[in-house]
């Protein structure tokens, strides 16, 4: 029973982070119908910028301020990517965005080792003396609870943004038909830029939440980017609520998998990732729109 609850605790906290990354991917996809393959690299840069500022030998910057600066750098990268993909957005059917986003991911990943070492680094936790939650023993750490609560608050915020705000309506309209949206007075350029800004900020925050639970490593961007993408597809890439559900499902699946595989073969339990991708492929085969997504019909 305790193992089961621990699996749930780990799965929820990890899944909440995947959900945030997935939400960032969904934000851009819903507005532009493109995927930002550099999402994970944005996360990695935000984590390492804040880590470098906080653990600077000359003058340590407090963690919340380091976070803000990290978010600022992430947003800058997001805008840079948006500028790169903008020419391709005007022409439906253009696949130049793949080149722009994959190219940006490659450049960031290539440059990162010049700034930061390749080994694992401990990321400071907002709860340095984490003794768990009173009454729950060692089941949930304060860090895990903080991650879950923060992620869920952000998810609620994004859901509200989508469904209740002027920007959310503009995002939906631009995603369906840019020209018709322009006839309504909606600036597609500004709307897309906002999508990239919010997506980059969400992804940076996901990085700040996940790094204290694991380690910071310059390869973390690839790993989390891929898993965020899997979570987004699992839930339905055009659905914000689907991305959240997909993230949580993936987190719990990933946490439970070693326990289940251990019963079959201890060796298998060491390699859970192929099984994650097997689940991804199964969903793509049997429900390509994701569990909560809707089949996308292009206008015109």
């Amino acid at each position: 029973m305790k193992t089961f609850l621990q699996v749930i605790a780990i799965g929820l906290s990890q899944g909440a982070v995947y959900a945030l990354v997935a939400l960032g991917i969904t934000l851009i996809f819903r507005t532009t119908r493109i995927l930002n393959f550099a999402q994970g690299q944005i996360l990695m840069v935000a984590v390492f910028v804040s880590l470098t500022l906080n653990q600077n030998a000359l003058k340590s910057i407090p963690l919340p301020i380091a976070w803000l600066i990290g978010i600022g750098v992430a947003v800058g990268l997001g805008v840079l990517i948006e500028l790169g993909v903008r020419p391709t957005l005007k022409h439906s059917g253009s696949l130049g965005w793949i080149l722009a986003t994959v190219g940006m991911a490659t450049i960031i990943q290539f440059i990162a080792p010049y700034f930061w070492p390749a080994d694992d680094r401990l990321y400071p936790s907002p709860f340095p003396n984490d003794r768990g939650i009173p009454g729950l023993g060692s089941l949930f750490s304060q860090r895990q609870i903080f991650t879950i609560v923060a992620a869920f608050l952000l998810m609620l915020g994004v859901d509200w943004l989508y469904n209740k705000t002027k920007l959310g309506r503009a995002m939906k309209a631009v995603a369906i038909d840019r020209d018709a949206a322009a006839l309504m007075g909606i600036s597609a350029k500004a709307t897309v830029r906002w999508a990239f800004i919010l997506s980059a900020a969400l992804t940076a925050i996901a990085g700040f939440l996940v790094a204290p639970l694991t380690f910071a490593n310059i390869a973390m961007g690839f790993d989390l980017g891929v898993k965020g993408f899997v979570a987004a597809v699992l839930g339905g890439i055009d659905s914000a609520r689907g991305a959240i559900a997909g993230g949580i499902m993936l987190g719990i699946f990933e946490a439970a998998l070693p326990q289940v595989l251990d019963l079959v073969s201890p060796n298998l339990a060491k390699y859970p990732l192929p099984f994650v991708f097997a689940l991804f492929i199964l969903v793509l085969v049997f429900r390509p729109q994701g569990i909560f997504g809707t089949a996308i019909r292009e206008a015109r």
Partner: peptide, 25 residues
Amino acid sequence: PEDRRVFPQSSVEDNLLLGAYRRFK
């Protein structure tokens, strides 16, 4: 426009509200 360009996935009411986008706030 000639081809109407309604937002097909959005409801009739959402389409109308999008028409009022510039006055929404």
